[in-house]
Amino acid sequence: MSVLLVHSHFGPTPPAFTSAIAEARVVSVRERQLTAEDFANAQGLITTTHLDQVGFMAHAEAVKTLLDRGGRWFFNGHILRNFVDGLEIYRPLEKPKRPDYALTRLAEHPIFASIEQKSLEENKGVAGFYGRGYNPLPPGGLAVNGIGPERHPIDWEWRCPQGGRIFSHAGNDLGGMGGETGAGKLLTERIIAWCSGEIG
């Protein structure tokens, strides 16, 4: 089974997915053309910051079915709709200053193995691209990276009570991070591997 990439924006898929799509490890489908069959054929699911969350609610049952059979969902962005029981609405940082963007690794995770979290904190000396808030950690979830002195869970993995797992990254697409360091491509490969159940 492959990983379903929900292609929400207008324009080509991000280049980091090109080889995985060519090898059929990832199937990219425009969001408005999604069918229940696309979910049924997928081991995992990747959604981007541009997800039409209003429209995606129509697929909540298909997502639940995917999770219930042990599938995985990598979510990029701010959760503003209750797709799955247990998820809560995004909370932005209040009037953040530079120290509030500090990133801290809170738990080891195969998606981030050997990648220093600090290396993702700034882009050309500017912090804030990684994220500016957090999707609240569901009960029993694992906080992977924290933001700010209070270490709010900007990245977390949650093993859903009924089965399946969700990884939430509450910022711009994680695969777009890392600037010219190459970390973005590596993160994309690992996100695909995690959604496939090959790691983690």
Binding site: D52, Q53, V54, G55, H78, L80, R81
Partner: peptide, 11 residues
């Protein structure tokens, strides 16, 4: 027009 992304929802 409401395309439904988080930034549209927030706005």
């Amino acid at each position: 027009v409401h395309p439904g992304a988080y930034y549209h929802i927030e706005s």
